[in-house]
């Protein structure tokens, strides 16, 4: 199973399957970290701390959108996005986030 498929399975089971309703905070945080870690390896692509913007673009293409130093890529679920935060042009942190825009 690809990492993208694993991430999608987690999303379906946990969020849309309703598991989240009975999970405690630590379990939810664990799911979040699993998704975040999977994201850093989606389809075998390693996005690691310290990579340059050009290296990220070469690896996974242009972002869907940027807000300041944070780049957002779409996921299989419309409200969730993969985010890459840069600091002085180098990857500082990756995450898996909701993005609500007004």
């Amino acid at each position: 199973m690809s990492n993208a498929a694993k991430a999608k399975r987690i999303m379906e089971d946990v969020f849309h399957g309703g598991q989240i309703d009975t999970m405690n905070v630590n379990e939810i945080i664990d799911v979040r970290d699993q998704l975040s870690n999977l994201w850093s390896q989606i389809n075998g692509t390693e996005i690691t701390v310290g990579m340059t913007e050009a290296q990220v673009t070469d690896a996974i293409g242009q972002p869907w959108n940027t807000i300041g130093d944070v780049w957002y890529y779409p996921s299989a679920f419309s409200q969730y996005h993969y985010s890459i935060e840069f600091d002085s042009g180098a990857v500082k942190e990756t995450d898996f986030v909701t993005l609500m825009i007004s």
Partner: peptide
């Protein structure tokens, strides 16, 4: 702040660290 070609009022990104 512009997203999808539309100037936006603001936003919130959550669910992460």
């Amino acid at each position: 702040l512009t997203i999808d070609g539309v100037e936006r009022f603001g936003g919130y990104s959550g669910g992460g660290r």
